[in-house]
Design a binder for these strands. Structure first.
Length: 311
DNA sequence: AGCGGTCAAGTTGAT
DNA sequence: ATCAACTTGACCGCT
């Protein structure tokens, strides 16, 4: 496979870019999904017809989502994993090429990619928790690689430059587990490998755990400040920010959320509807960075944060 | 039309 | 042992 090339997203205005994750709170832009169980009841022909309907609708919704972002100074959009529902399922999954009207669906995704590029919008993927690159179980790794490859194909069409995952499990020995992560990077195609990023989580892998991997393997660190506060490692926000920046060969991508009942509440890892501007790290101002906003009120949370930060 | 059960998959830690 | 949490409610069959 030819080496994939990622075009850095043009930065319309140098500085802060807020990003919306996956869906809307009030806007009538809806992505539709289905389940493997429901599809198993259908014939293959009926399945493919249903998938084509859902995928075409979701590709259209994606363009609407990007248009909303462009119109409201939302600088990036995280594309939801099930935009092509059940795609990598072992028995009822499908390849895009199998779908009736596959050409139109792909063309619509490419239209999204062109729109994003023209508008200076950034897009990315965040595969769910079942994608674990460092599992000791070969089957899990194989399925994870397949999932990453599937999303890499979608990412190429939509001009998305990140596919972000967590470190995975510790299995009692983080060092060995991270070595396995590094080794399994070699199983990815160029287009998946060039987009892969890793994010610190709130249970297992801190920035201090991941930075050596990121530096050695050229995997950018998606620094999640909320997770870092839930699972600290002795490093300051400033230090991690600076180290994480250096792992990026393009504009860095960070995550931000606020705890639902405050930092002293019973479950600080749960996300609030909005962002408390006091949770926005001062170290993230003054240079080009994408900050994905993980808040349940979605576009409303971004609008409020834009106002609070005087953006 | 409204309601309740269900949804592919991994890993961890709280209960 | 079970379950919630993770990026998040939506679909489907039944009444």
């Amino acid at each position: 496979m030819a080496a994939a090339k990622i075009k850095p997203t043009p930065t319309a205005t140098a500085g802060l870019r807020l990003g919306l994750c996956c869906q809307f709170h009030e806007q009538p832009i809806k992505f539709r999904v289905t389940t493997a169980t429901a599809m198993q009841r259908l014939s293959r022909r009926q399945q493919l017809a249903r998938y084509a309907e859902l995928c075409a609708g979701n590709a259209a919704a994606l363009l609407a989502a990007l248009q909303f972002c462009a119109a409201h100074r939302v600088g990036s959009f995280r594309i939801l994993t099930p935009i092509f529902p059940v795609k990598t399922h072992p028995t009822v999954g499908y390849r895009v090429e199998e779908l009736p009207s596959a050409g139109e669906i792909i063309a619509q995704l490419q239209r999204c990619g062109e729109f994003a590029r023209a508008q200076g919008l950034r897009t990315g993927f965040h595969p769910d928790q079942f994608v674990v690159l460092n599992s000791p179980d070969e089957n899990i790794v194989a399925r994870s690689v397949a999932d990453l490859e599937s999303q890499a194909e979608l990412a190429e069409w939509t001009n998305a430059d990140t596919i972000n995952i967590h470190g995975g499990g510790a299995y009692g020995d983080k060092r060995t587990a991270l070595e396995r992560f590094a080794r399994n990077l070699n199983r990815l195609s160029a287009r998946a490998r060039a987009r892969l990023t890793v994010e610190n989580d709130d249970k297992t892998y801190t920035p201090a755990d991941l930075l050596p991997l990121c530096q050695a393997e050229g995997v950018p660190l998606v620094y999640d400040a909320h997770h870092h506060r839930c699972l600290p490692d002795g490093l300051t926000v400033e230090a991690v920010t600076e180290a994480a920046r250096k792992t990026w060969n393009r504009e860095p991508l960070f995550h931000l959320s606020s705890p639902i009942e405050g930092w002293t509440g019973p479950k600080p890892e749960r996300h609030h509807d909005y962002i408390n501007p006091k949770d926005f790290p001062a170290a993230w101002f003054g240079w080009p960075v994408t900050v994905e906003i993980e808040a349940k009120a979605k576009e409303l949370a971004i609008a409020r944060l834009q106002a609070d930060l005087n953006l």
